[in-house]
Design a protein around this nucleic acid. Structure first.
Lengths: 229, 229
DNA sequence: CAGGCATCCTTGTGATCACAACTGTTGTAA
DNA sequence: TTACAACAGTTGTGATCACAAGGATGCCTG
């Protein structure tokens, strides 16, 4: 009965749990992280349910899950929405990101293999291409892929969800990248030292280079974004 | 109509939102963090609802929220429960904790005020008392209060929920403290250098002392706990 | 006595309904 | 014209029901 057990089947992806709630959650999560919703955007259960063609049940659970991850917040009017940060909060987030993601980069420098390094080179090349074509959405997706390839190489199942939560928190502010004419090529420039440090297996340099990348990106965002008082 | 606005009312606690779901969430969250549930303990929606005298609705949302914070996990049998870690995962968690909570301690050393320092002394004294009386539950609560007083002094709204998530993840392993005859006095000894470093406003020393405290505590837990293969 | 199968029970999941709190608007009266 | 009250609409929240998927249990048969 059935195919014989094969070693290939080790550690394959979970069956994706044909869970409606899970699908709604993934959908909203990616939308937030890719900057589809501006800061302060309010999301009502019924509106999302209607947009996705489901009932309210899966949506309210997905929204609540995203609140727990700090991707969304409960507005004072007891409604869901993307958080609106003050400049001080944005700065706080930037510093924590530099520290935690820098740490992940240092760990990655100790463990990364050749195949993953080549993967980073590939993404970096694709980003340069996306810059020329001014495909901002693709650029943001590639940037995300670049960073999380490194964080994945750090090999910590504890660290990864933490970093994802941090990215969910800046997510809404990526909308300003679309709105403004900011040249994303700067980010590309800051990626090169990261790759170089990883190749040299230099943890301290990797940490510094990645922190610099985050700092640069935050500086650009700070210029074009608007903040809560 | 009503009382005149007073400056005293600035920044008071939110009205606690007489939310049933919120209350269930808080209850379960604290139970997990205080080590009321052993690793691998399964929690069914209906059982919790019955225990709390509510319907299933608030409970399922609270459970899902806790899954998002890594306090609970979805067991392969599609049921909720506290996570069961392997020794490698426990070690990973320990290292991330030492790094992130150490960083928080370093920040706290830069910003902590005299009143909070006195508060730490008070908690430390109470812990010594609890040790003598072998009140393990009280000891765990005080230890939690000690650490989070420091983390609160770090003054980062981004860092605090991250650390709370880390504590939720070790929570179940605190049950072994109750089960075993482990002497918690060691923890008290490692708290003294932390306080000393904070008093000296020495970030590096505070980070090292707090990391040492976490390392010591994890070592004790490692001895008495049992892990997944 | 052992193995396999049918049955029941438990589980999470999704939908629907009723409700209270709040918002914004509209209509009326001074 | 303005102020206030009533109302309609929207929102999250909680309860309840139906259902499919597993898992366990017990019965029946060889």
């Amino acid at each position: 009965m059935g195919l014989p057990q094969q070693a290939d089947l080790e550690g394959i992806a979970p069956p994706a749990r044909a869970n409606l709630q899970e699908r709604v959650y993934r959908e909203l999560r990616q939308a937030v992280m890719r900057g589809h919703f501006p800061p302060g955007r309010s999301l009502t259960i019924r509106a999302v349910a209607a947009a996705l063609g489901t009932s309210a049940m899966p949506v309210r659970e997905a929204l609540r899950q995203l609140v727990a991850e700090r991707a969304l917040a409960m507005l004072p009017n007891r409604s869901f929405g993307t958080p609106l940060m003050s400049l001080a909060q944005f700065d706080d987030l930037k510093h924590i990101r530099m520290r935690i993601e820098g740490f992940a980069a240092a760990e990655a420098a100790r463990r990364i293999d050749r195949a993953t390094l080549r993967e980073l080179e590939r993404i970096d090349g694709a980003m340069a291409h996306a810059v020329r074509q001014v495909e901002r959405a693709r650029f943001i997706a590639l940037n995300q892929e670049f960073h999380f390839t490194i964080y994945g190489a750090a090999g910590s199942a504890v660290l990864l969800p933490i970093i994802e939560s941090l990215w969910l928190q800046i997510g809404p502010y990526l909308t300003f990248v679309f709105a403004s004419g900011a040249r994303p090529s700067v980010t590309h420039a800051t990626h090169r030292p990261v790759i170089a440090a990883l190749k040299r297996r230099d943890p301290a340099a990797a940490e510094a280079a990645l922190a610099a990348d985050i700092g640069e990106a935050a500086l650009i965002l700070q210029r074009v974004a608007s903040f809560a008082p």
